[in-house]
Amino acid sequence: MNLYTSVELPAGLPRLTHADRLLLLGSCFAAEMGERLLSAKFRCDVNPYGVLYNPLSISVALREIEAGRSYGAEDLFLFRELWHSPMHHGDFSSADKEKVLETINTRLQEAHAVFSQLDYLLLTFGTAWVYESKETGRVVSNCHKQPETKFTRRKLSVDEIVLDYKELLSDVLLRNPKLKVLFTVSPIRHVRDGLHANNLSKATLLLAVEQLQMLFPGHVFYFPAYELLLDELRDYRFYAEDMVHPSKLAVDYVWERFVHSCISADALQIMEESENIRKSLAHRPFHPESDEYKRFLGQIVLKIERLNGKYPYLDFKKEREICRIRLKA
């Protein structure tokens, strides 16, 4: 007896390797997947603008990264004693204007430095609803809790999203023909919009991504994270206490499906060996000063060196430093 509806994953999804360079932009779901990819030793930059929810903010961020834009004082505004950027998440905000600019520009420079070498863009759309500043007429990424009277709220159309991304991806692929783009739609519902408005929003995003797949075959793909949570994991136990965000169990499940459909066989082996190293270092010995534990740490160092010998692009700086400190203790 089959007691749940299984979501069939699309055929021909790209297979990521540890040699690939990845850039992830989008909602909290992109941040969650990005952190897991980083922990698995993939070379990726995750949300250099902080969390972004709507497609237009993500496309503006990509254009600014590609151009290597630098932010100045004129790009910030002061509200409730903090300096903010309308393009950036509140994590970048501070009472120190220079600190905000330094943080923003450092992250932008890091992303720009590798943009032309990217193998994959992983973009997660959260909502088709946007807020336009009445002062500038531009879509903002974050209102920073300013009064709603300062903004015009509207829903993007499918055509508007497709036209914007057709222009963006045509330009990016002309400069980097090897690039592949993997879209997801966040399964997190924006209940503040109302559930009906949220459903219209998600449908708009899904239709836009489908059209982009048809416009850029072989370059644009879709991973059904939205469908996995909404159609396969229907029970409330798969949601956090707010009944909106996925629970850890649900995120683990979607991550597992992503790994098995979008990660290469060689990368899976590297992930397993990296996880074994992480677990070994998480082990707390009864006698850390003993020769036996020093030999144990030495074996971990040898494993790291062996992996780095085969895959020099893997980053084990943190693990090496932990071993060095414990060996000296």
Rank of each mutant, 00 (worst) to 15 (best):
194 G>R: 00
144 H>E: 11
328 K>M: 13
119 D>P: 05
239 Y>C: 10
69 R>S: 10
15 R>P: 02
259 V>N: 02
191 V>N: 00
276 N>D: 11
12 G>T: 04
68 G>A: 04
24 L>M: 08
21 R>A: 11
27 S>A: 11
108 L>T: 10
256 E>W: 01
10 P>M: 09
180 K>Y: 06
35 E>H: 15
192 R>N: 09
5 T>L: 09
223 F>C: 02
238 F>Y: 15
317 K>R: 14
323 C>I: 12
254 V>P: 02
221 F>R: 03
94 S>Y: 06
196 H>E: 10
25 L>G: 06
246 P>Y: 05
79 F>A: 09
223 F>G: 00
242 D>V: 04
186 S>H: 02
301 V>T: 11
318 K>E: 14
283 H>P: 06
59 S>Y: 00
277 I>F: 05
261 S>E: 08
168 L>C: 05
257 R>A: 11
296 F>Y: 15
82 L>T: 12
234 R>E: 10
307 L>C: 04
294 K>F: 10
181 V>R: 05
202 K>G: 05
46 V>N: 03
292 E>T: 14
129 W>N: 01
146 Q>T: 11
255 W>T: 08
203 A>M: 07
310 K>V: 00
164 D>I: 10
201 S>K: 00
213 Q>H: 02
169 L>V: 06
133 S>M: 04
256 E>T: 09
120 Y>L: 06
91 D>T: 15
99 K>G: 09
268 L>S: 11
282 A>H: 14
256 E>N: 12
128 A>I: 03
323 C>S: 02
83 W>I: 08
295 R>E: 14
281 L>E: 05
46 V>H: 01
109 Q>K: 15
191 V>C: 07
94 S>A: 12
281 L>P: 03
77 F>A: 01
